[in-house]
Amino acid sequence: MTDPAKTIIGFIGLGLMGRPMCRNLLKAGISPIVYNRSAPPREELVREGATAVPSPADVARLAEIIVIMVADTAAVEDVLSGPHGLLQTLRPGTLIIDMGTTAVPATRRLAALVEEKGAAYVDAPVSGGTIGAEGGTLTIMVGGHDEAVARAKPVLSVFGSRITHVGGIGAGQVAKAANQVIVGLNIGAVAEALALARAAGVDPARVREALRGGFADSRILEVHGQRMVEGNFAPGGKCTTQRKDMHQALEFAATLDLDLPATALSRDLYDRLIAAGDGELDHAALFRLYERTI
């Protein structure tokens, strides 16, 4: 089994999620080799003990296991197959772990390119937001071959408390698509319920408290409902990201001839919110659509 402390680990992508995840590697006694497109996050992590390199290709020259945590499918494709991407210098035996939310067809295509180099690929998207990233308590949905997943798990355990091997390559991303459908629709339900309470002249905070412990309770009601009540929309997961993930789920569903009308409606609501200038806020800011009409 992989011992992360004795393995050279690369980490690419130091955004809202990547930075706290990388810090958990440092807390575990691992000094990762890091790359990020913008310099300030790299410099920040270097001050804390990481080693920065100028490109993904440089990460691949050095690391045995490489974690990718970037914004979207296009970014993953650039990290892997761009002019300075991992595939330029990828060595046989290297393990790539994509922990972002990447389209299923692209995941399978990129995995095939990695395997052609004699390396291994695991898709391991996460749920839990910045709270889970900071606490090392992310829920991780894993797709990949048994041997590669077994090798990845000790590293994944640094980031998450619940790790489930869902199936072959791409299965983790299918599970994440399902996750984002549920999250998006649940945020919409909580937003509408609390907006209903406020419009009726009843304190949404008390309504939220009354619902806790019953069938309407959920992690979304607990965390995002509190954000809605307080009007605190500092981003843990951005509206633009939620919209992107739901659109990605709809595109994948279309390849299966599956209609997801509620998901499409939720995606469209996020489009309205983003058009109003709130795209960089937390996805719980969907509540603001309703606040404006109360």
Rank of each mutant, 00 (worst) to 15 (best):
V183E: 02
G49C: 02
V122C: 01
R212T: 15
L86K: 02
L95C: 12
A71P: 01
D78A: 14
D146M: 09
A253L: 03
R198C: 09
L211V: 03
G160E: 09
L286K: 03
I96Q: 13
I8Q: 15
L289V: 00
S266W: 00
D72R: 08
P105L: 03
L211H: 08
A124M: 11
L25E: 13
R272W: 11
V229Y: 04
D268M: 03
E222P: 10
S31I: 05
R23S: 11
A111C: 00
R19I: 14
D3A: 08
A249K: 01
Y35S: 04
T139R: 10
D259N: 12
A197E: 06
D72F: 08
A195E: 08
P4I: 04
L221H: 00
G170Q: 10
P40N: 01
G128T: 02
N186H: 14
I163Q: 10
V229H: 01
G15W: 08
G136Q: 01
F159T: 10
G236V: 07
M17C: 05
T94Y: 03
I140G: 05
A103L: 04
A254C: 03
F159K: 04
D245F: 01
L90F: 02
A74C: 00
F233G: 02
S31H: 15
Y35E: 02
H145D: 15
G129K: 12
P54Y: 04
A197D: 01
V104Y: 08
A193Q: 09
F287W: 12
G188A: 15
M1F: 05
R151E: 07
E43T: 13
E64L: 11
P4T: 10
D123K: 06
D72V: 06
M21H: 03
V149Y: 06
S31E: 15
D203A: 12
Y121S: 05
V79S: 10
V67P: 07
E251L: 14
D257S: 14
A249N: 08
L286Y: 06
I9P: 12
A52N: 05
R162F: 13
S81I: 05
I187M: 13
D3E: 14
L260D: 00
P20K: 00
V79H: 09
D268Y: 07
D203G: 01
F215G: 06
F11I: 08
L113T: 13
I9L: 15
E116C: 08
A119R: 05
I131R: 14
G201P: 04
P204W: 13
V158K: 04
G143C: 02
P32Y: 07
A254Q: 14
G18S: 07
L156F: 13
A39Y: 09
F233L: 11
T7Y: 08
G29W: 11
P83Q: 05
T164G: 03
D217T: 09
G49A: 11
S38R: 15
A52L: 06
A199Y: 04
V229M: 02
A197R: 06
I65E: 09
R219I: 12
R212M: 15
A249V: 06
G85V: 00
I274R: 06
V70M: 08
L26R: 05
V223A: 08
D278A: 14
H84C: 10
M1Q: 11
A112P: 12
R288E: 11
I294P: 00
L90A: 04
A189S: 14
I12R: 10
G49R: 10
P40I: 05
K27D: 11
D78I: 00
V158F: 03
